[in-house]
Design a binder for these strands. Structure first.
Lengths: 140, 140
DNA sequence: CTTGGTGCAAATGATTTGCAAGCCT
DNA sequence: AGGCTTGCAAATCATTTGCACCAAG
């Protein structure tokens, strides 16, 4: 499978550039996370990664998410009363909306929110490191 | 202490109006939470409430927070890697900024954020139930 | 080689729950 | 009276960690 090989090579590259050690487990996990269009939690990642590479343990998924988050490659989403979810660090700034009926996590595109946040923060004498907005809503 | 008595009576009233049973534990807990200017977690609440009323258990603090949250009297703040914190449901809409150096939780006043949120949500075909923004920042 | 990564299983920490007893309405 | 609430301790759930072994640079 040529595409898969190419992709995995890319992820190895990404890890290397971030100054992280490249291990098969990390490459597998990051491959799965990159292909996910939802926002998987550790259990999801563990199961899907396992299908591809059965040397991966849950502990390593946790450790890898932590490492990738610190390296700024991954964003951790902490929502109420549910395990944390993850996404590859988005190129395009966006926030999230939780559909209360379906449980879906919808991405809110655009930089408007980010702009308002940094204006508001600077009015208080702060500079933003990160921000995250979660909207809980229902379809009209 | 006349003020305390008056206050506690108020809280009993609030509980009654929300259709909730009035117990001494609930009155004590809500008294403590109302007087807090920080955003206490369950452990904080438990310890402070204990000083006032030693019949309260941690389990009851958890259960009471849950009941009050459902009744819309209390807001639960879920931040990364830390136990949940609580505040009385704010009259004046506000969000939160975490000072990364001091750990302080600063309130961001104003309705600007809320307005943007509901505009953005309605553009996606949703109506907001609640929203919460957390900014992580450092002093300039 | 040397440092850091991994699997496994046990440990932790926050929150929840089963149960018997007690209190609110 | 009858059902909701409580305290206590045990249970649960997500996440973390100690340790012996293995692999990346």
């Amino acid at each position: 499978m040529v595409t898969a090989l190419t992709d995995e090579t890319d992820y190895r590259q990404i890890l290397r550039e971030a100054g992280l050690r490249v291990t098969p487990q990390r490459a597998s996990i990051i491959t799965i996370l990159s292909e996910a269009d939802d926002h998987p939690n550790v259990e999801d990642l563990y199961e899907k990664t396992r299908a591809l590479d059965d040397t991966v343990s849950v502990a390593t998924v946790y450790r890898t998410m932590s490492v990738l988050e610190n390296a700024g490659l991954v964003r951790k989403l902490v929502l109420d009363d549910a395990p944390a979810r993850y996404e590859m660090m988005p190129q395009t700034d966006h926030d999230h909306l939780v559909d209360l009926d379906s449980g879906d996590l919808v991405e809110i595109p655009g930089t408007e929110i980010a702009e308002l946040m940094s204006r508001v923060a600077s009015e208080l004498g702060y500079e933003i490191v990160s921000h995250h907005t979660v909207i809980r809503a229902r379809k009209i």
